[in-house]
């Protein structure tokens, strides 16, 4: 993968835009998921992903080690996303701002208010569970669960070893399981773990 990256970067520098298209194919999932991790909106994340690829292309000559294309474009994506948040006046409290409010999409609403509300509620609780994770785990969890990236793909994009990615996802999943499992019982099996409301 790494020598393939170096080859593609070399071709791009020679003006081969097809080679850059191949890099987009390889990294679009990771770049999009990273943008989403910052802004939490599908449309905005897609814009940021495109903008990040353009920035990468323009500054490709400054990439010192073509084998590190993954961590390098990850850095560009984070910077682009942070700038987007600044421009759009969104609050940016720390380096790890997961998105926190969610409106009901039209297609959700068409399925009836109950389904839509359930979906929004489920989404909010999943995000809260991710938010409760240590900061270092969150982007990796989003890469895995939003885009279903393999450990190797995550490792290639983040620069962490595959072994470390596996460890992080194992520890994160244990915490996520503890946070989420009651909700599943509550949601799909109808066995509420919540005490009945008192009058």
């Amino acid at each position: 993968m790494q020598s393939e990256n170096a080859r593609l970067v070399h071709l791009c520098l020679g003006g081969d835009t097809g080679a850059f298209g191949r890099l987009v194919d390889l990294y679009q999932g990771a770049v999009y998921a990273t943008a989403y991790y910052y802004v939490g909106r599908h449309g905005a994340a897609e814009d940021i992903a495109q903008e990040s690829f353009l920035q990468a292309y323009k500054s490709l000559r400054r990439l010192k080690d073509p084998n590190s294309f993954g961590p390098w474009i990850r850095e560009i994506t984070s910077r682009t996303a942070v700038n987007w948040l600044r421009r759009n006046g969104s609050r940016l409290q720390s380096e790890a701002p997961l998105p926190f409010e969610r409106t009901i999409y039209l297609e959700d609403a068409r399925q009836g208010p109950d389904t839509a509300l359930e979906r929004v509620e489920r989404f909010d609780r999943v995000l809260k569970a991710i938010e409760a994770l240590p900061e270092r785990y969150r982007p990796i969890v989003v890469l895995r669960y939003l885009q279903e990236l393999s450990y190797k793909e995550i490792s290639d994009f983040t620069g962490e070893s595959v072994h470390e990615v596996r460890g992080i996802l194992q520890r994160a999943s244990r915490q996520l399981r503890d946070e989420l499992i009651d909700m599943k019982n509550h949601g799909s099996e109808g066995q509420s773990q919540w005490p009945p409301a008192q009058k």
Binding site: V24, R119, R122, K184
Partner: peptide
């Protein structure tokens, strides 16, 4: 673990990128 993973995938699925950005970027 399986149930929790399924929930995560399911909750994030509506926002997944399902099409290629290649042409738009090129």
């Amino acid at each position: 673990h399986h149930t929790a993973s399924a929930l995560l995938f399911e909750a994030l699925a509506p926002d997944r990128l399902n099409h290629s950005l290649r042409q738009a970027v090129l």
